[in-house]
Amino acid sequence: MLILIGMAVPATRVLIAMESTGNPDMQIKVTGYQWKWRYDYLDEGFGFFSSLAADSNEARQLRSGISPHTVPNYLLEVDEPLVVPVGKKIRFLTTASDVIHSWWVPALGWKRDAIPGFINSSWARIDEPGVYRGQCAELCGRDHAFMPIVLRAVEEQEYRDWVVQMQQKQQDSASEANQTFSLDELMARGEQVYTTNCSACHQAGGQGIPGAFPALAGSAIATGALQEHARKVLYGKAGTAMAAFGVQLSAAELAAVITYERNAWGNDQQLAEAAERMGQPADIAVQLAQGVP
């Protein structure tokens, strides 16, 4: 009994400290998606998605033949890490877009569930610059194991520079929407986007998983009308893991991935109309602006 009380007192003190999320220096909204994270810097007004790094993603496919030991930070590396300044009290607001996830960086000492429709708050102040890694901790479907978290803590000045860079990048991707790309450019970019966002379910060879996830190779959608195909990608399919990528990817990325899906795996041979082989960012932007037909 005394031992229990001896444990309860410090536990209570720590808990109260952990829950005092009152006065942060900055706020980051963390949104869980199936199966990646999005980080929004509320004070700076920009945000981005963070997905499993390409080399890990390739190695983790069933019977990929690539030894995980040869991949640096296997399953613990992302394409775009979260960057924060050291010495600042950061309030993390966690939420989710589809199902419940849980944001966990062990070095921070806590995890917090990301629940669709609700935001949770927790805080951290990181004193040591460095890279901190973590994973999703709440079962969120097929690729629950493949949505890591990488948090890079840097000095204030480096952080400032990074913010400027990120804001610039977002502007660039907005202007890309007006450019025209060649088929090769779209295919190359599309393959990357496909690997990061689509291959988990539809598989690298576009064959899907029978019964669970439809095939894209030779599918009616990917070889049918371009606009219909784009609609599916942009707005997803309610009640399934097929997300609305219109809100997740830029117009150029969307155009690239749609073009890739229509030309890879021999789909180009089956296209109803050869003219509909590729989409351009501008078309996608128009379709996005027009909305669901």
């Binding site: 829950e19 999320t21 009152g22 309030r91 607001l93 939420t95 429709g117 609700f118 935001i119 949770n120 708050s121 996005l288 602006a289 027009q290 909305g291 669901v292 037909p293």
Partner: peptide, 19 residues
Amino acid sequence: NQARHAVTGRAIPSMAPAR
């Protein structure tokens, strides 16, 4: 509304810290 037809939505408020 981005769609070409009427859509109904509902906003769910949430506050942080919940306290």
